[in-house]
Design a protein around this nucleic acid. Structure first.
Lengths: 237, 237, 237, 237
DNA sequence: GATGAATGAGTGTTCATTCAT
DNA sequence: AATGAATGAACACTCATTCAT
């Protein structure tokens, strides 16, 4: 059950006559595709207009400028992610299932939206210049962090999680493990001479990441009696 | 011992007279900065010239085109990474120390070169179009993978590593864990309302990542008797 | 009755407001002048824009590129020639009148459009690179050749023309005799130290060319009894 | 027996060491090729340098500027033509043979040097701007005209030529008839959909032109009793 | 005599944006 | 609401030419 999102180019081709909201929406979705594919600077508004099946002038009519359209795109795409995250209902799942579900969802979402990943990467190239201007996005991720914190706490109480883990560090790790093989799929495939976009490799990666995360959460910190204790581990403490 | 590299904007400002190799090098280093900061499309030739303290024409004299300069930049920056990796001498270290060393180095290198990370991100936005054209880069990463494979094998033989791990998966994970908080430091800082570039957070991250990796390598696969086994884990096997 | 054509620089200077076809036409006519005067490489887009009284950008709006504008210019100028030729109605004239009419028209047209001649010369310098790309021009000259063929045949039947002449050879000769004193008027005037653009000389030339062509068509091939037969003529047969 | 000229690209490839006159000559000959092929504006001095197997700086050393090199090229190429013309010794030939010889030579020379024709065309595009600056060329064609005048006069005296012909008009006609199918070979081939550079067509053309010229010279002016006299001829007188 | 480095003024072309209808 | 025309500021790249060795 993989929800479809606006990232696919499923913009209706027939330009409905005189349907303002429709046109606005078509422009926005065309913008998502264009900005994801070419970044902010690389995006061409005549291409967006063409893809939206409307006049370039319409884009200015509805969004005012390239920058404002771009910000609208950022908000839409982030909003979708946060919305879907909220639907995971992590608070209703047991700690292990919850973490695994989050990993699975994150990997699926990024895997299904490689161009959203590209958009993110581009926004970072711009040092967050536009995301910062958004009124909505910066406030939206608190619930997720709270849900993770809750999972970790419950896991500790139930004795299934052995460590005291920072929720943000954990989420950044989960995100990272699900992100780079998507964001850097081209350079990785080239430098390691291996197509890392093939389904078999991606399946292996999902298992690998879930085991990584769980092994960490469920094992205890290294100690003198730990089987993998040695001199090098001293540097970790 | 953290070697400084060309990524910092430490290009001598005084345009030495009639020093061809010097000029070429200054252009290359100015190109690294400009391409890292603005990506391929956003980079401006005249800005590179200005930063290199030379005439725009010189760039074409030495590199022929924006594209060729960009490829030279990619090769330089990748070459540096691979060179430093080779100096880790992973083959001379015991398995645990070796992995920790690799994690440490990767985190340091990416942390010290956030703009190299941006360059990578941009090259992926372009779908690897230019990296693919390089004659050097695609061939350079085999040694690293071989070194990791060797570490894992020795760890297994010595009984310190419990799992049969794919070297590429492991390296992609290490890279990921060291990469995203750099590549996405702006969007993460904004969405989580927390400055993740501050040294304290980065130190915590280093420990977190090293523990994550080691916990995974040293623990055994989940089994029926495992303390953290439960229904959810069935999906992992 | 000498129709004026676009070759003269009679482009209205006042930039009418919002008249797309007008603007397009003004660009085309400005292009004719600029390309004729400086050739393809020497022509400057900004000069064309200035002459057309519009923005450089408009040229790309209407024609797409310098090359496409140049091809449009070629097509316009050739089209004009072929159109006027078709209006001669050679088929309705008796053979002698027809040939004289064609000579007269060709000399007039080239004489009135020395810059079209320059344009032709330049296209040959480029080895026909652009004319070849035209969809229209290559097909347009068949009717003329057919009309000449008809004139020659009727002349033969009526006994007024003594020779069996190839229509293409004849037309190339007529064209040549009307062409070079225009195309090469500068070098000829310099090397022969004589202004060959003065009306008196041009009038003399017209008579000379008409007599040359008619003398050839009406006389019979040299034979043993021919008054101008001699040893040298042997080489002609 | 077709004399070779500098127009062929027979520039020795080995850059002789320290042979000033040699280098100068190589530059000049490379310039002929480049200017002929691309015209004045289109010619690239780095291409000339490369073809001459020397440094761009040498061109400025020997010729001072692109313009001066171009003028030197004009003088060389014109000088060659006039030199060869003088070797025809028209004064020693009987009138018919002389004219035929001149036609033959002109057709051969232009046919063998299509790129010289292009150079001429280009110089006319520039309105003779550079040829005018030459000290040598403008004065060199008087002997040829004198020789033609002598041929015509002798022909009249001997009774073989029936008309009183202007020498310049005749020469311009001969030149024209030998010139356009070379200068305009591309546009003619395209517009008439026929390859006019094939040997068979050129052979036919030579015969055609010689007959055309001789028919004119040897026939008398049209009169009332002339077989080809009709109403239309009235306009010729 | 000979060379490679260096330069400034263009050149065709592109782009986000505004005007007029 | 919607459109096509029009614009000015860049942009990558080129060229004849000069400088320094």
């Amino acid at each position: 059950m993989r929800p479809r999102t606006a990232l696919q180019a499923d913009i209706p081709t027939a330009p409905r006559k005189r349907d303002p909201m429709m046109t606005r929406d078509r422009v926005l979705r065309a913008g998502i595709v264009e900005f994801c594919r070419h970044g902010y600077i690389g995006a061409r508004i005549d291409q967006i207009a063409k893809r939206a099946g409307c006049n370039m002038r319409m884009i200015y009519h509805y969004f005012g400028s390239k920058e404002k359209l771009y910000i609208a795109v950022l908000e839409r795409v982030f909003g979708e992610l946060r919305l879907e995250e909220s639907r995971l209902h992590l608070g209703h799942l047991d700690p292990v299932t919850g973490v695994l579900r989050l990993v699975e969802f994150t990997m699926d979402h990024l895997g299904r939206h490689p161009e959203f990943v590209a958009l993110l990467g581009n926004e970072n190239l711009l040092r967050g210049k536009y995301l910062r201007k958004s009124q909505v996005v910066p406030r939206a991720s608190a619930p997720l962090l709270e849900a993770i914190r809750d999972l970790l706490e419950r896991g500790r109480r139930e004795g299934v999680y052995a460590r005291d883990v920072d929720a943000l560090q954990l989420y950044v790790s989960i995100l990272s493990l699900c992100y780079v093989h998507v964001s850097n799929r081209y350079t990785l495939s080239i430098t390691f001479n291996r197509d890392i976009t093939e389904p078999a490799w991606l399946d292996a990666r999902r298992r690998h990441v879930q085991q990584l995360v769980l092994a960490y959460l469920c094992s205890s910190e290294p100690s003198a009696r730990s089987p993998f204790s040695n001199a090098a581990l001293a540097r970790l403490t």
